[in-house]
Every structure is written in structure tokens, then in C-alpha cells.
Amino acid sequence: MAKTYDCLFKLLLIGDSGVGKTSILFRFSEDAFNISFISTIGIDFKIRTIDLDGKKVKLQIWDTAGQERFRTITTAYYRGSMGIMLVYDVTNEKSFENIKNWIRNIEENASADVEKMILGNKCDLDDKRQVSKERGEQLAIDYQIKFVETSAKDSLNVEYAFYTLARDIKAKMEKKQEASNPPGARSGAHVLRASDQQRKPPSWLSRCSLL
């Protein structure tokens, strides 16, 4: 059963150029780190299957280019993704401020149910830090998004971040499932009577147009 899985979650990494999106993904998918900076061309993706409460979840993680010139390509991938990681660089003030822009970008382009998470990357570089952890946390509270500081280089919290996001998506899935079923699923025998009554009157009069 090596190749089968229960669900496929599509995740997306966005953030300014050079904040370490590709490194985070590289750390998560291959557990490795590359010091040199190679700008991503347009888009790329990696696959990793994780085990979540006994369910095999395949993660297809899209890595996007932060550069503006690829924006049209990258935004096309917002809609299909179930979870989005917003990445900023703790040693780069500008990238932190731009998180707001990225969130706006998500609101415009992504599905409304998308799960979000903010990552402050490069937290190993404490001497060059420009954005404190508290500010990151405050931003996350403002937007009611989960937040974690990571380091792709030291492999800090990277696994945790992806697992948390995947778990949130899974929780949402279970919740959705309950809600999507007709109300009978929630309120037992009471509804049986109600629905029986509903069925009886001839349909001529039930001119329901607006629910």
C-alpha cells in the first residue's frame, strides 16, 4: 500500500522573494538544506505523504516565486489550494510588512475556506533579527491565523508547521462533513416526525421559492 493515500491536500507557500519558501519546502520534503539562493522560476511543487491520526494524507505543496513578474502565474494556483503558508523573513522588516499585502492577495484570489498560517522564517539568525517574535504573534492574532517561527536551516518547527496546517485542514474537513449533511444528522428522531409531516401535504400549495 505504499502508493495509496486517503486524502490529497494542496498547500501553497507564498511570501516575498528570498524569505526561504523553497528552503522550507526542501527541508520538509527532503530534509536537507541548501545555503545558496536560487530564485524559483514561476512555480514548483513537492509531494510528501504524512500520517495524520492513522490517515495517510498526501500533501502536494506548491512553492511559488516571490518575484512580482511571476505573480500572474502564481495567483492562478491560489484557488485550488486548501492551505496557504505565508512566509516572511525575521531578518527582513519589509517582508514582514508585506504579509498584509499577501493576505489581501489571498482574500482576492483564494477560496474563502482556505486555511492560513504565518511562518517567520530564519529565526536561527538572531543577531540579524529585525522582527521580534512578539510582533509576529500580534499580527497573527490580528488576523486570527496561527503563527510559528521556523528555521529551515536548523530544521526548527518546519515539520510542526506543515503538520499543524494539515491537521487544521483535516479538522475543517470533518466539521464541513457534519455540516453538509441534512439537519437530520444532528437532531435525531425529532426530525423524523418533522420530515414525515413535510412529506404528507400535497405539493400544489407548497410554493416555496425562497428558503
Binding site: S17, G18, E68, F70, N92, K94, N98, N101
Partner: peptide, 19 residues
């Protein structure tokens, strides 16, 4: 600047063939 911020308002040059 463009590399560092990614939020340059001007659209960049079109993609090259290799890209």
C-alpha cells in the same frame, strides 16, 4: 529592490523561453 520586496508595482519583463 524587486528581489528583496517582491512588491514592485511595475510588472516585470515577460518570461524568457527557458523560464
Amino acid at each position: 529592490i524587486r528581489l528583496r520586496t517582491g512588491w514592485c508595482t511595475a510588472r516585470g519583463e515577460p518570461l524568457s523561453a527557458a523560464e
